[in-house]
């Protein structure tokens, strides 16, 4: 069952996981909208790399499919969709005014990573899967960082990328904990994620057209008075 180069693959997956976490933190801390998009593409590549490594180690063709689907949708289709729905002006935006400044954002990010490990521990104690030791806590951490990005960023595209990074985090954990998830579910999720990007991208375009800015965090006409 296990491939002869198991320990090499294990170390490579740990390295991939570390880089994956760095890109998630990068999405939280980057000011430029375009740089956030590039970080997301890098993160998606690392996700498919991890799926590939696990696929080799576990001899699972499912995971090769996951790797292929991830590359096709998240590094090609989604950036293409976003470039065609959201105008160039939006990508040139630099977010000067944030909910939190970058040092305190990074501090919170570090705290979230620690929490992710604390939460993953009892799960790993109950079921021992070698790759879950790397992928589950790091996936959870990327997930929390995605939630934090959505909350802390005011621009529309970074909020969307936070959402997509959150989904990457879930799948990063997913490839390790459920390597045998039915292909139909993966295909369905592969359709779902670009639709999220399309709908949110179109909505961003409409907001830009109607309001003249994509600072969605500042929209506050609707609240209890």
């Amino acid at each position: 069952m296990h491939s002869p180069h198991f320990s090499v693959i294990f170390s490579l997956d740990a390295l991939t996981g570390a880089l994956f976490l760095l890109t998630a933190i990068g999405v939280v801390a980057t000011r430029q909208v375009l740089a956030s998009l590039q970080l997301f593409i890098a993160q998606s590549l690392l996700l498919s790399l991890s799926a590939l490594l696990l696929g080799i180690a576990l001899g699972s063709p499912h995971l090769f499919a996951v790797a292929g689907i991830t590359i096709a949708t998240k590094t090609v289709l989604i950036p293409w969709l976003l470039r065609h729905t959201v105008s160039v002006e939006v990508y040139r935006t630099r977010e000067i005014d944030r909910v939190l400044n970058i040092p305190s954002s990074l501090l919170i990010a570090a705290f979230l990573v620690v929490i992710a490990y604390a939460i993953a521990n009892p799960l790993l104690g109950a079921v021992d899967l070698p790759f879950a030791r790397i992928n589950l806590p790091l996936g959870l951490a990327a997930m929390f960082l995605g939630v934090f990005t959505v909350v802390a960023r005011r621009e529309a595209v970074p909020q969307l990328l936070g959402l997509l990074a959150l989904e990457n985090g879930v799948f990063f954990a997913g490839v390790a904990i459920v390597p045998e998830l039915p292909v139909i579910a993966e295909l369905a999720a592969a359709v779902d994620v670009p639709v999220v990007a399309l709908v949110v991208g179109l909505l961003t375009r409409q907001i830009h057209k109607r309001i003249g800015s994509t600072s969605v965090g500042r929209l506050a006409a609707l609240r209890e008075r």
């Binding site: 939630v147 909020q159 969307l160 879930v170 949110v200 909505l203 969605v216 609707l222």
Partner: peptide, 21 residues
């Protein structure tokens, strides 16, 4: 209406991804 639609999509999708895990 666009503000409402934005909050609706972003927050409920965020929730749905948590549920996915």
């Amino acid at each position: 209406a666009l503000e409402a639609a934005w909050k609706y999509v972003v927050l409920t999708t965020l929730g749905a991804v948590l549920a996915l895990l």
